[in-house]
Design a protein around this nucleic acid. Structure first.
Lengths: 233, 233
DNA sequence: CGGCGGCAATCGTCTGACACTTGGATGGAG
DNA sequence: CTCCATCCAAGTGTCAGACGATTGCCGCCG
């Protein structure tokens, strides 16, 4: 094993978690024991634990019943990590707006069909709540509701990975363009598209939802590309 | 600000990186300065830095020219994080083999078409190198080459996000089923599919590549599902 | 029986010290 | 003048010890 002791230790524990030797929910030895077991100082142990914690592999609590517990990363955790990574890659111009939207097409168009087929009544209700009236709400609320609509639709497919992967993509786009001045009629067009999608999902019309989503994403792509050109001069 | 000091500090620095205030490549103050600036001990600073480092937001080196430098996460970093997350979600049975393969379909089938359109001669050569002869190589080598073939194909699309997202999916499947006993003729079928895909990409036949990839993934799905049923009894 | 205070376990934080790594500066040999 | 070995300075890496903060439990007292 090479590298600093904290990295070696983190790698060792990490491997034990990944291999299932340390089951989710189980408790790691306390910091003094780890320190003694591996023959390193407690600071070194703590640095290794911080490393694991920031990857959501463990969770640490204080108090008499405290300690470090193996935790299963949630959809939200994974999604958040992916979002920061994609944000930075986009900022470094290694990823373009067109590439982001192209991936959304690949994922969200079939997802709309799946959602139309598998949605529950409760999910349909969630979808309705995520609609908005562009004439009444402020920019902040519309921009948040816009994300929610797509999020709920992804969730209704029943495949959690779809949400993990796709949510970061549109969150990156939304935080980048949410504040900019959108073209005239953009938000009302979005609201119309969402309403249409809602109705098609309600009717379980998978083919219709697929077509509508494709058109909706085409609208978004056009608007985003236009805003992107403007912001770059 | 709530929570432990190391978390607050990590969040503060993290926000400065995400906002662009700390540019990629720039150097953070050394640990003593950070300690003084934020009024915390050096151990606390170090725990915050380990946290950021394990998210690939900074990179720390030793020596006189050492320190912590803001770093842009690479495709490999992101991909690796996603892989561990998906591995754990799959282990916790929150994600099924079918769902993993369904996502591969969504992403890799169109990717094959894109690769056929945009591939360079060099990438075609990489693709050829990633083929294998099931009669000659051992299980270990075939299993690694199988991954490489799909990886190279994704890379040839020119969209780095496609690789980031898709590579973890098939790596998870490969590490899970790579050691198991595959059905008779599985590997030679895979080799034939790869050879066919290579030829279609060479001929820049996008539609053909799409069809071939769809069939190839159908083969894989069948084999994986069968192995999955066996391993569960 | 219920509230309340102490108690123990554990993490959180600070201080100070020293070892290790690295790259440049220095100085002598050829 | 060039080249190589050596020393030095700036950082991170690691350890030991101490004390504070938090939390849940247990026993005491009303």
């Amino acid at each position: 094993m090479t590298g600093p002791a904290y990295a070696v230790l983190a790698g060792t524990i990490r491997a034990r978690i990944l291999s299932g030797e340390l089951a989710p929910g189980s408790r790691l030895p306390n910091e003094q024991e780890l320190s003694a077991d591996f023959g390193v100082g407690r600071s070194t142990v703590r640095e290794a634990l911080r490393s694991l914690a920031s990857q959501d592999l463990i969770q640490t609590t204080r108090g008499v019943s405290g300690g470090s517990f193996v935790s299963v990363p949630t959809v939200g955790h994974l999604s958040a990590h992916l979002e920061t990574g994609v944000t930075l890659m986009a900022a470094a111009e290694r990823v373009t707006v067109g590439q982001l939207m192209s991936l959304r097409h690949l994922l969200e168009v079939p997802a709309a069909g799946e959602a139309a087929r598998h949605r529950t009544d409760e999910q349909l209700e969630d979808l309705r709540r995520a609609e908005f009236d562009p004439a009444e709400s402020t920019g902040e609320a519309t921009y948040s509701a816009n994300q929610d609509f797509h999020l709920v639709l992804l969730r209704a497919t029943g495949n959690p990975l779809l949400e993990v992967i796709t949510a970061p993509l549109f969150r990156v786009l939304a935080t980048r363009f949410g504040r900019d001045h959108a073209p005239d009629g953009f938000w009302s067009c979005v609201a119309d598209d969402h309403a249409e999608l809602h109705d098609l999902v309600a009717a379980r019309d998978a083919d219709g939802a697929i077509t509508a989503m494709r058109r909706h994403l085409d609208h978004l792509t056009g608007a985003y590309l236009q805003m992107d050109r403007l912001s770059r001069g």
